[in-house]
Every structure is written in structure tokens, then in C-alpha cells.
Design a protein around this nucleic acid. Structure first.
Length: 566
RNA sequence: GUGCCCAUAGCUCAGCUGGAUAGAGCAACGGCCUUCUAAGCCGUGUGUCCGGGGUUCGAAUCCCUGUGGGCACGCCA
């Protein structure tokens, strides 16, 4: 497949040696309207050096330029030089590439086997998995898949919130009001109720908070009772969590939560001490970051127990030593921005240059009808309810529109879950999301089901064609506007993946696949595919197959299934 | 108070490291199933791109400033 941007840049440079190839490439753009061509080169930058108006420069260039075979014509429009690619050449080039590469179309090896750690999902044990946790999970999962597709060796780590003072709270609550059998029956909800009850009671009895902290001190000291309760709570909740991951189709290489680093903390504290980074303040131990315009990073409470940051530092050191990552990505909501800046700085102060390879990928918060979701207040929207609700809704629609569908259960799951994931990945990650049942369950327009439907439709046409698709077709039949629009989008896919990786922004792929689905649906409505004319049919099938493959690849990168029928 | 983030159509949002008339979806109205899945397609309309300055040949995009909102700021995670 030709890198058109590169080729055109080289071409232009022959006539404008004043500019670096890189500059020309950066300048080359896709015009806002396809009537203006496939690529455009604005001549403003040259006006000063050439001491001519950009309009005149464009005009002179048009007259000079020697048109290569893959370009149909070059036209000047005011200060712009517009390139119109040869449609037949272009469509053939792209379609042949897609049909050859198939599920690898868009894949590249820029990662060259280098390791990327992705720390994502990380729900708190003993708290329910709500819609807020979904974002880290699906964004992290998409980043994992995107990096993998680009040749990185990915390590997905679920840094479970399974350690800390909160467990002291749950232990206190359990010892006061808990019932063993209830936890066994419904661990997450029962533990949640205990947690909520703790906070209700602690309002009137603040000593409970001290008790909780004491229990956490015991946990870190290896107290048997504390640890066995903790272990019990964790295993029970983890079982529930794994069910959710199963439904979402998300997996991890390691479930090493915060507790995993318990025995690795002392050496971190010693190292910090050895590097003279620690300071005592009001009984607590911290790293002073005043110089860097940040509040201090607390590493030990006055009772000697550790904090979130301490365990994050220990985890980073462990990962660097064991995985030798090129980059370690943390996917959390933006309320943790300061936390990450602080301990990244501590790593840097410890003298590790790889502090620069630690990347925080923040995302916006989820509210429910404008209100904050708070576990403690019990105002949660459970992810499980959202998922099962979406699946039920899909079942209703299937009964209405396609009652003879074969594997209804599986399709309902794929589409319902796909709708929820797609919805979470459609906007820029930094934007807050106001969760609403209506939008989560809407399946029209820019939604997952719309894209999946487009894919299923393409599959259906291919099936009904009763023939295999091959790339040896008459490309003269594929040069109309609507067809070329589809191919143009297909051509952009590899670059979209690169952008998504560079910016850690899966929504670029979500947006892209909607555009492609729209273009394909226009093609589908405009052109009948399984026509009598065998030559035409064969040509159009090549477009359908290519579109189908790229939609599938894009959905794969997002962690969304693409059923063949729905 | 200090720091960071956000502000684009009635609603939800795109708009790449500045570029040609600012775009989608939803909602509303009208059209398209005796031919490949109507979860679809086509058509109709709306904008002080939060205000004010500045940089530039050119600003929704960059800089400054004001307003409105969000988040964070020592023993939670």
C-alpha cells in the first residue's frame, strides 16, 4: 500500500527544496471537502521566502509539476495546491491491501516487542463494581489491544484496591454487625452495606475510625485474625469481579493488587531514607515537594502504616525490575492527577530516569443524573444492572426485528455489552459522563449496535452472494463518489490507530468506525451488491468485504464483539 | 485561597501539532421496504465556537485576562 502523504511530500519537495520533507508532510492536509481533492498543500509558508503571493506560488507549481501515475490531476485553488488521486489506482491499491492483510490490516510493528505495562480497572475489593469503574476497565482494555496491535508486548495489571484503611473499616463493621452466612451468600452487597453502615455509625462515634486504623496496622503487622478476615473478603469479592470481567470480555495478565506489595514496602522506605528524601512532619513520614510547587507526598502515617502512594512507588519499582517496561500506563479518573504527579516526582528524585516513562492517563468522572456517585452514600448504579438491562433490551429488539435469529442469547450479550462499552468509549476520555439509562440503552445513531448492525449487514450480503471474494476485480467499476468515500476512510485506518496509541485515546477509533459505518451504509443503500452483472457484483463484493474486515478490526481494538447476524 | 481541567447547535458531542463555507448523532418534520437485515438510507434548520484583549497572511484551535462549572490540595484510595 502506498503512503500517499509521503509520496506526495517527496514530489512536492522536488519543486520546493527550501522546505524539509518533514515540513511538507506536516503541511499536507486533507481538504474539508472531497470536491477539493484528496490532499492539499497550502502555500502560505512559502510566501515570505519566495517573496510571492501564495496564490501565485500555487499557480506556478501547478504548471511545473510532473504528474505521477497515481495522481489524476493537480489543481490550484487560490493559495492551495489540490491533489486528486487516480481513483482506480487508489481503490485498487487499498482494497488489495485490506484483502491481503485481513485481520492484520492496520497492524504495525512500531512496538518492536517492547514491553508496556497497563495498570487499569483496579476496583476496590469489598465495594461494588459500579458504572464509574467501567471507564478505567474499558479504556485500559482498549489501550491494551491497540498497543498489542502495534507490536508492543503488553502486560495488563489489575492493581486491585485490596489493601488499606478501608479494610480496617470493613473489619470493624463485620465484627460489630456482620453475619457470616450473608457474606457467603452475597459478598459484595453485604460488604457494601457494612461499609455504608460503618460510615453512618462513625458520624456519631468517631472512635470507630481509630479502631479501623488500628485494624489496618494489624494487617500490615501480619496479625492472623485481621489477615484471615481480609483474605476471606478478598476471595469472595474477587469471584464476583471475575464474573463481571467475563461478561465484559476483559482479561488481565496479573491480578496483583495493592496487598501484593506489602512485603516490598520496607525496602522502599529504606531506599527513600538512604537517599535522604524522607522528612518527619507531625508524626508522619513524607517526601517534601515544596520545591516543585506540590504538596508533600505522604509515605507513612504516624502509626507507621503505609499509604496509597507508598504502595504505588513499590509497585512501580517492582514492575520496572521484573518487566523492564518501556512505558507504564495508569488509567484512572482525573481526581487522582495530583497523586500521580507527586509520586512520579518521588521516583524521579530517587534518581530513576525512567520516571519519564510513567504515564498517567486520566479520564472524566461519571455522574448519575448530575449527581456524584458515592459508594458510601449508597447512590450507586451497579454495572451489573446496566449490563443485564442492556442485554434484556437487546433481546426485546431481536424478538421484534429478527425473531428467527439463531443464537439469540449470545448475540444479545454481544450487542448489549457492546452498546455499553461503545458508549463509554465514544467521547474524549477527559470529558465527564452523565450516566443516563436512556443513552446507555439507545441503539440508534452513533452507537455500538449501529456499527455492529452495519457489520452484520455486510456479512449477510457476503453470505447471500454465494461466492468467495477476491481482489482481482475490474476497479474501473469502483470509482464513483460514494464508493471512493468508503475506500478513503479505509485508507485512514492505520493512521487512526497510530493517533489513538500516541494520545492514549480510544475514542478516536470509536469515532472513526462510526464514520466508516456511515459511509458503508450509504454505499449499501445506493448500490445493490448482489446484481446479475457478475463483473459488477464481484467488484462491489470486494468493497463489502474490505469494509466488513476494517469494521471488525476496529471493534476488536475497542474490545467489542462483532456478531455476523443480529 | 492555590494548582490543574472543562466551556462549540435545544440536548450529547467531533473538530488532528492554527488553514479554504464550523460538522455528526439525538430530538422535530417529510420521504424510502413485491430486490442483499428499516438497529438502515435520503431530505429540511439552527451557531455572539463563554466574554474581552493579543500573536498571525489566517484563530473554535496558540498566549494573556475575565466569567461560569468540575477536580485536587497530610495521615482515604
Amino acid at each position: 500500500m502506498i503512503n500517499y502523504k509521503m509520496k506526495l511530500s517527496e514530489l512536492i519537495q522536488q519543486y520546493i527544496p527550501q522546505l524539509e520533507l518533514k515540513e511538507i508532510q506536516d503541511l499536507l492536509e486533507i481538504p474539508p471537502n472531497t470536491e477539493m481533492g484528496d490532499f492539499a498543500f497550502p502555500c502560505f509558508k512559502l510566501a515570505k521566502t519566495l517573496k510571492k503571493s501564495p496564490q501565485i506560488i500555487a499557480e506556478e507549481l501547478v504548471n511545473k509539476i510532473d504528474i505521477p501515475n497515481y495522481v489524476e490531476r493537480v489543481k490550484n485553488t487560490g493559495p492551495y495546491l489540490n491533489f486528486f488521486l487516480d481513483r482506480k489506482y487508489f481503490v485498487q491499491d487499498i482494497v488489495q491491501e485490506v484483502l491481503k492483510s485481513r485481520s492484520k490490516y492496520g497492524a504495525q510493528n512500531i512496538g518492536d516487542g517492547k514491553t508496556i505495562c497497563i495498570d487499569f480497572s483496579a476496583p476496590n475489593i469489598a465495594k461494588p463494581f459500579h458504572v464509574g469503574h467501567l471507564r478505567s476497565t474499558v479504556i485500559g482494555n482498549a489501550l491494551y489491544r491497540i498497543h498489542n496491535y502495534l507490536g508492543y508486548n503488553c502486560i495488563g495489571i489489575n492493581h486491585l484496591g485490596d489493601w488499606g484503611t478501608q479494610f480496617g473499616k470493613v473489619i470493624v463493621a463485620y465484627k460489630n454487625w456482620g453475619v457470616k452466612e450473608e457474606i457467603e451468600k452475597d459478598p459484595i452487597n453485604t460488604l457494601l452495606n457494612l461499609y455504608v453502615k460503618f460510615h453512618d455509625e462513625a458520624v456519631n462515634k468517631p472512635s470507630l475510625e481509630d479502631e479501623a486504623r488500628e485494624w489496618f496496622v494489624k494487617m500490615e503487622a501480619g496479625d492472623e485474625e485481621a489477615l484471615s478476615l481480609w483474605k476471606w473478603f478478598s476471595t469472595e469479592t474477587l469471584k464476583e469481579l471475575k464474573k463481571i470481567y467475563e461478561i465484559l470480555g476483559v482479561s488481565f495478565d496479573y491480578f496483583t493488587g495493592e496487598s501484593f506489595y506489602n512485603d516490598k514496602i520496607d525496602s522502599v522506605i529504606n531506599e527513600l531514607k538512604g537517599k535522604s528524601l524522607l522528612k518527619e512532619s507531625e508524626g508522619a513520614t513524607l517526601v517534601d515537594l515544596d520545591e516543585y510547587n506540590m504538596p508533600p507526598c505522604l509515605v507513612q502515617k504516624k502509626d507507621g502504616s503505609t499509604l496509597y502512594a507508598t504502595r504505588d512507588i513499590a509497585a512501580a519499582l517492582y514492575r520496572k525490575n521484573n518487566y523492564d517496561f518501556e512505558k507504564c500506563i495508569y488509567v484512572t479518573d482525573y481526581s487522582q492527577n495530583l497523586h500521580f504527579s507527586q509520586w512520579f516526582k518521588v521516583i524521579e528524585l530517587m534518581g530513576y530516569t525512567w520516571a519519564n516513562d510513567l504515564v498517567h492517563v486520566p479520564f472524566g468522572r461519571v455522574t448519575h443524573e448530575g449527581k456524584r456517585i458515592q459508594t458510601r452514600k449508597g447512590t450507586v448504579v451497579l454495572l451489573e444492572d446496566v449490563l443485564t438491562g442492556a442485554i434484556e433490551r437487546v433481546k426485546e429488539i431481536v424478538e421484534e426485528k429478527n425473531p428467527n435469529l439463531n443464537n439469540k442469547e449470545q448475540v444479545a450479550k454481544d450487542v448489549g455489552v457492546g452498546a455499553v462499552i461503545f458508549n463509554d468509549l465514544s467521547n474524549n476520555r477527559i470529558k465527564d459522563i452523565s450516566f443516563s439509562w436512556d443513552t446507555a440503552f439507545s441503539f440508534e445513531g452513533e452507537t455500538g449496535p449501529y456499527v455492529q448492525y452495519t457489520h452484520a449487514r455486510a456479512c449477510s450480503v457476503l453470505k447471500k452472494s454465494n461466492q468467495n471474494v477476491d481482489a482481482d476485480v475490474n476497479y474501473d467499476l469502483l470509482t464513483d463518489d460514494i464508493t471512493v468515500d468508503v475506500v478513503r476512510l479505509i485508507q485512514q485506518f492505520p493512521q487512526v490507530i497510530l493517533d489513538a496509541q500516541r494520545k492514549n485515546e480510544p475514542s478516536l477509533i470509536t469515532r472513526y468506525v462510526v464514520d466508516l459505518a456511515q459511509a458503508f451504509n450509504r454505499f449499501y443503500n445506493q448500490h445493490h451488491i448482489n446484481v446479475e452483472d457478475q463483473e459488477l457484483k464481484k467488484a462491489r463484493l470486494a468493497i463489502v468485504e474490505s469494509s466488513k474486515l476494517v469494521i471488525k478490526n476496529a471493534l476488536d481494538l475497542l474490545g467489542i464483539k462483532a456478531p455476523e447476524e443480529m
